[in-house]
C-alpha cells in the first residue's frame, strides 16, 4: 500500500484546485480518493459500471465545490466523505438528504465559538488508531451503517439483535472516537 498523503498535503491540493484550478493537484486528489470512493459505492450495492461512473461524478463535484472547502472548518477526508455520501443517497437510494447550511446557521446565530472545530486540533492518526481498536462487534455495526447504508432497525434485523443493542454499540464506538477528538464524552 502506498503512503497516504498527509493532512497538510491534502489541504494544499484542495487550495490549489480551489484557487488556481490546478490540474496536477486535482489529479493527486483523484489518485487518492477516487478508488476509495469507488469501493465505497460498491459496498453500498452499486454495480461495477455504476460505481465507476458515480466515483467519477463525485470527483467532478469535488472539483466544482472545491472553492467551498474551508480548511478551518472541515477535515479534507470528512469533506470528501460528505460529497460521496450525499451523491450516493441521491443516486443509489434516490432520496433527498437534508442538511443544514453550516455557514448560514453560524451567521444567523452568531455562534462563533460553536464553529466546527479547526482542523489543526484533529489528530487523524489517533482517530485511525481508535477506529482500528474498536471491538469487532462495534466495528461491524459501524461498517453496516456507513458502508451498507443500513438503518439501525435494519442492522438489528440483519444481525438478529435488539434495536437497543445496536444503538448502544454505535454509541460506544462513537464515544471512543470522540475521546480521540478531545471531547469530554
Amino acid at each position: 500500500m502506498e503512503d497516504s498523503p498527509s493532512h497538510d498535503e491534502l489541504i494544499e491540493w484542495f487550495s490549489a484546485v480551489a484557487l488556481r484550478q490546478d490540474r496536477r493537484a486535482f489529479e493527486s486528489l483523484f489518485n487518492h480518493f477516487a478508488p476509495k470512493i469507488k469501493r465505497y459505492l460498491l459496498r453500498q450495492g452499486a454495480p461495477e459500471h455504476h460505481a465507476e461512473e458515480l466515483a467519477q461524478e463525485t470527483m467532478v463535484q469535488i472539483w466544482r465545490k472545491a472553492h467551498q472547502y474551508d480548511p478551518a472548518k472541515a477535515v479534507p477526508g470528512a469533506w470528501v466523505y460528505r460529497v460521496a455520501r450525499n451523491l450516493r443517497i441521491d443516486r443509489l437510494r434516490r432520496q433527498r438528504f437534508y442538511e443544514v447550511d453550516l455557514d448560514q446557521v453560524a451567521e444567523q446565530a452568531d455562534e462563533a465559538q460553536d464553529h466546527d472545530r479547526a482542523t489543526d486540533q484533529i489528530d487523524g492518526e489517533q482517530i485511525r488508531a481508535r477506529v482500528a481498536a474498536l471491538p469487532p462487534e462495534q466495528r461491524e455495526i459501524v461498517n453496516l451503517a456507513y458502508f451498507e447504508g443500513l438503518s439501525q432497525s435494519e442492522i438489528g434485523a440483519r444481525l438478529g439483535l435488539p434495536l437497543g443493542t445496536v444503538k448502544s454499540r454505535l454509541r460506544l464506538a462513537f464515544g471512543k472516537l470522540r475521546k480521540a477528538l478531545g471531547e469530554e464524552v
Binding site: L42, R85, V142, Y146
Partner: peptide, 15 residues
C-alpha cells in the same frame, strides 16, 4: 470525520 477515516480504511478499487 469518522466517515472520512472509515473511507481511508477501504481498499482501493482502481478505476
Amino acid at each position: 470525520v469518522l466517515g472520512g477515516e472509515l473511507l481511508e480504511t477501504l481498499e482501493d478499487s482502481p478505476l
